[in-house]
Amino acid sequence: MSEASAIASPTVPVLECDRVTRLFRVKRGLFETPVALRAVDDVSFAVHGGEVLAIVGESGCGKTTLARMLLGLLPPSSGSIRFAGRPMEGVGRSEIAARVQPVFQDPYSSLNPRKTLGQIVGLPLAVHRIGTEDERRARIAEIMELVGLPPHLVHAYPNQLSGGQRQRVAIARALAIQPAIVVFDEPTSALDVSVQAQILNLLMELRRTLELTYIFISHDLAVVEHIADRVAVMYLGRLVELGDTGRIFEDPRHPYTETLLRSILTPDPALGLPPGPFDGEFPDPLAPPSGCRFHPRCPKAMEHCGATAPEARTDSSGLVECHLYNGKSHDR
């Protein structure tokens, strides 16, 4: 298969984040004054048409908040998101939905149990008033076939389906109105491995045939390595590294990325457990460490890492935000 570079070089990114920040006001106790939680902090990146961009990081790193902003479900506190060059503020709610569709982690809670498959998959068509009733019925049949659901299930309810079939329904629903971008939030982590493989194969095939762009949020780095073109690594709301999948996995630059990669457990009995990544707790997001947010857990931390925050540096290998790469070339 072709590498990321073989994808038609785009002129305008399909989706762009420019210094996107999202704050939440959190009360720690009943009588405490609220504290600002920077769930996503000054994140900028561009998504090109036809690529799979994975967003990885531990729970609490802001990846789901970022996804909700990309879906137009949550406005950024500052910064802007652009669709094909147009700022999102100027794009209506229904137009955003027509361009970007979500698929969530849990196919048990994301489908309405009282609706049949036909109704679930057809709802976006009805909402967007696409086609006549007959055309919609034909479209539902077509899309169900596309995701590998047998036609007789059109009258079935979600509780009659297996986990894998439910996730196919969620994918069918997302694709019904032909969006350009699909945002997947942990789409296979609730599934068994044999079913996960079926769904991943389906996603790769759909992307090829429908020329879709995927934003793929996952904590499973082996899955990310397999299907993503580029990987964005987040830590405590910051985008700390971004680059082509091959480069990230072969030559990670940020110490946090290195740590994440070391914790992948490939099924090789000769290897044993990797050395413990780091001791110490994930920091309190309400009181993030000073300087570089990763410095208390960083094996390569230097004296000034706790004092000043590193600046993001962008070059031909992508983006990295680490003092190791600040102010000097890194031709290692």
Binding site: A197, A222, E225, H226, T266, P267
Partner: peptide, 9 residues
């Protein structure tokens, strides 16, 4: 299961 470095991406 995808196996980084073994299964072809």
């Amino acid at each position: 299961i995808p196996y980084p470095g073994k299964t072809e991406r």
